[in-house]
Design a protein around this nucleic acid. Structure first.
Lengths: 217, 217
DNA sequence: AGTAGATTTGATCAGATGGTCAATGCCGGC
DNA sequence: GCCGGCATTGACCATCTGATCAAATCTACT
């Protein structure tokens, strides 16, 4: 099976137990890579958190780089999903609300995934450049076209679609990527049910008010 | 001299040349730490980019940690500056526009600084927790109060100030922190004059439309 | 019980890493 | 021109790190 990132040497698991180990390794690796990046994590650390010896981990993933790539790849689909879902046939206000909400939901249900990609960006996105220029760029092109069509039909205020898209991404990712800052200031974060609900409402309303001709709140 | 972060052992420079070296070290360290974080950077690398030997670097900064702290500290003032400047006596639309613009300007003039703090957040902000809970939290409290006062006087739509603040931070930081993503999609970034001007206008307009009662564009 | 194949690990290696130290180079003031 | 303190570095050290390997252990199936 080919992958979006590159041809990948599959991990070496051949039994149930082996697959469970691979899953534990990937979980541990996600946690650590999202925090410290590829270079800031040691194989020993990952192995310890995954509850096995270093050689055992390296039995499943030949190199640290292969492990990193596997982690990135496993998150990629989930990460791209909410970026794709701008429904051009729905009315703008519903579509945008859904778009924002699903991105915010990703920040909540997969904060480490969100941070992993933020980490990649900070490092210059060496493993993602290609995906960004192909898959993501065309996704964005489609979303931009949808937004521009709405503007042309007078359903949205004139706005540069790219900046709107970036602003929505940024505002929603922020709750995962800058969680310590938010918790230091608010005393709680996106994991808190009430806080999530509040963020969902406020961010959606803010952007809708920002772009809709007839403010819908 | 005490510092916000902690009592700091000053670098050991005692001559002009020494101070120039310290400056080169701090520059090199900022670049690398912003990209790879504390753990992902080696002293050797910093020394090489700063153009000197490792022992020589360690003559000025006793440990890697001391160097990291110095870098963080040097950026802290600059980083906090645009977060403080919400002028409660100006009219909301001017004040917010200025707030957004100065944050965006920071992303442009100091992208590595922006990324350094993003990196700290991803790592759980171990070196910043205290500042976040004290200096930043009270700054935010003041800004929130200003926004609430405007809402109370009917000058702004009702909105939860914290989420508005976070959204403005996020949208403006995004241009520095996610630069590779933006460049992969747009083919240019915040360093480009036209693109910066475009971002400035679009983001300001978006937020102002989002919060002002009478849309000002 | 026996076997093939999957899994696990202790021991080990070469190179990297943070940090130290003694020795040397350098420069301005006398 | 020489002296004292700042600056610089090669050599070194203990430890860490990514990776390898042969040997040992486990597991499902016969």
């Amino acid at each position: 099976m080919t992958s979006i990132l590159r041809l990948r040497a599959r991990p070496r698991a051949k039994t149930r137990g082996g697959e469970a180990n691979v899953a534990r390794i990937l979980d541990a690796a996600l946690t650590l890579f999202a925090r410290y990046g590829l270079r800031g994590v040691t194989v020993d650390e990952v192995a310890e958190i995954a509850g096995m010896s270093k050689p055992n981990l390296l039995y499943y993933f030949r190199t640290k780089d292969a492990l990193y790539t596997a982690v990135l790849e496993r998150m990629l689909t989930l990460w791209l999903e909410p970026l794709i879902a701008l429904d051009k046939d729905a009315n703008p206000s519903d579509a945008l609300r859904t778009y924002i909400e699903s991105k915010l939901q990703f920040s909540r249900s997969n904060p480490e995934g969100s941070r992993l990609f933020a980490m990649e960006m900070l490092q210059g996105a060496p493993h993602l450049k290609k995906v960004l220029r192909t898959t993501l760029a065309s996704t964005v092109a489609a979303t931009s076209a949808t937004i521009e069509a709405w503007i042309a039909r007078g359903k949205l205020r004139p706005i540069a679609p790219l900046h709107l898209i970036f602003a929505m991404w940024a505002a929603t990712q922020h709750y995962a990527d800058f969680a310590p800052q938010i918790e230091a200031i608010c005393g709680r974060g996106i994991q808190d049910d009430d806080f999530f609900e509040e963020a969902r409402r406020e961010i959606s309303d803010l952007f809708l008010s920002g772009v809709m001709i007839r403010p819908e709140r």
